[in-house]
Write a protein that binds this DNA or RNA. Structure first.
Lengths: 106, 106
DNA sequence: AAATTGTGAAACCGAATAGTTGCGTTTATA
DNA sequence: TATAAACGCAACTATTCGGTTTCACAATTT
């Protein structure tokens, strides 16, 4: 079962859940109230988010508060940065090529 | 059919394709050589990436070079930044609460 | 102790997805 | 002109995914 941050945020409902609990930890029922779906569906999304450690459940009596774990978001930053690095290298290569052409032209 | 950047980068093969063509535009065949799958499968991934405008095809004779379009990546940044904003607001609220408790205690 | 509340888990269903195979079209080459 | 190469598209398959329904269990409330 693939379970990573990329797959987790692919679903719009899960992104909305993340935005919701970013402000404050909430219970599945409280979260479900914000959506036009059943608690069980939300529960499944929370399971996915928990499994990829984007979210952390915290039992409090018979309620479970789900809170966001921001540190896992860094994986997105890291990947984006990696792509940007490669992207910049591309232009460096082009610069080098143009420089070479210029030098050979003289 | 859902077709956005989040869904596009959910697939590890597509992320690898993005990393590949970030350095230089490549043809489907050239890309497929880097993977343990058929050209048609890669072609499908390229279609997804093209449809959400992460990639741009450029016909050159009988070959089609696919190049990365970095600007669409900004949507990821925007979303991440949005979540971070909310996340920070959370601590502001906590600060306010602590401040209030302190003031009431006096 | 009994009823209620908050929850996860399992079974099931329809839709979406990744992959393969086969085919047709366009461009280049012998 | 015949052949090969590069490619997209359509049909098909197996798997995954999001959602619903039902059930079981533990913590509260009455």
């Amino acid at each position: 079962m693939r379970r990573d941050v990329f797959q987790a945020i692919a679903d719009p409902t899960r992104r909305a859940i993340i935005a919701l609990i970013a402000l404050q930890a909430l219970t599945p029922n409280a979260i479900a109230e914000h959506f036009d779906t059943t608690r069980q569906a939300i529960s499944k999304h929370l399971k996915v988010l928990t499994e990829c450690e984007l979210v952390q459940p915290e039992q409090q009596g018979r309620e479970i508060y789900y809170q966001l774990k921001m540190d896992k978001m860094k994986e997105l930053d890291i990947w984006l940065e990696q792509i940007r690095k490669i992207w910049e290298k591309r232009f460096d290569q082009l610069d080098n090529l143009l420089q070479q052409l210029k030098e050979n032209g003289q």
